[in-house]
């Protein structure tokens, strides 16, 4: 039986992993929270700056696999400039996309984050992909 090689590390993922836009510390962050996947060691600190209800800036630092780091970077690009509610809405869509429950229209609204849709077929990596988003939910007081 031949083994079919797959490559799920698409260019969007590898670019965000190698050249992240938001991987740095944020001065004067209003909210700061650590997210950890204890079984694999992925670890991020998510920081946000808010103006009223709007996320005006954000950043992360951390260590982990390409999927966890790239997903957090892509997430920040998507949520900066959005309101809390909009950000939580995107998080909800992302989580459902990973479970294979989001519509194509919804997935389109995730822009670059839609590059992670195939993670739905890789149960071992789901936790990596959602680490940033779960930390965001917790930070914005959803959980």
């Amino acid at each position: 039986m031949e083994i079919k090689s797959r490559n799920f590390y698409n260019e969007i993922l590898t670019e965000h992993n190698m050249h992240p836009d938001y991987k740095h510390e944020l001065e004067n962050a209003d909210l700061r929270l650590e997210g950890v996947n204890p079984n694999c060691g992925d670890d991020i600190w998510l920081e946000l700056k808010l103006d009223g209800d709007v996320i005006v800036d954000g950043a992360y630092t951390g260590d982990g696999c390409a999927i966890s780091q790239a997903s957090a970077d892509i997430m920040l690009g998507l949520i900066i400039g959005k309101t809390r509610e909009e950000a939580l809405g995107l998080s909800d869509i992302f989580t459902r996309m990973i479970k294979g429950e989001a519509s194509d229209e919804e997935i389109d609204s995730l822009e670059e984050a839609s590059a992670l849709r195939d993670i739905a077929h890789m149960p071992a990596r789901v936790k990596c992909a959602v680490l940033g988003w779960h930390t965001l939910d917790e930070l914005l007081g959803l959980e």
Binding site: S5, M18, G41
Partner: peptide, 23 residues
Amino acid sequence: DDVHPHDVSAVLEADGVDVRAGH
């Protein structure tokens, strides 16, 4: 260099090689 062990093992796994990654 530059690649997290979980990504190393994921690539190997995709090519049909089972190894362990972590501490």
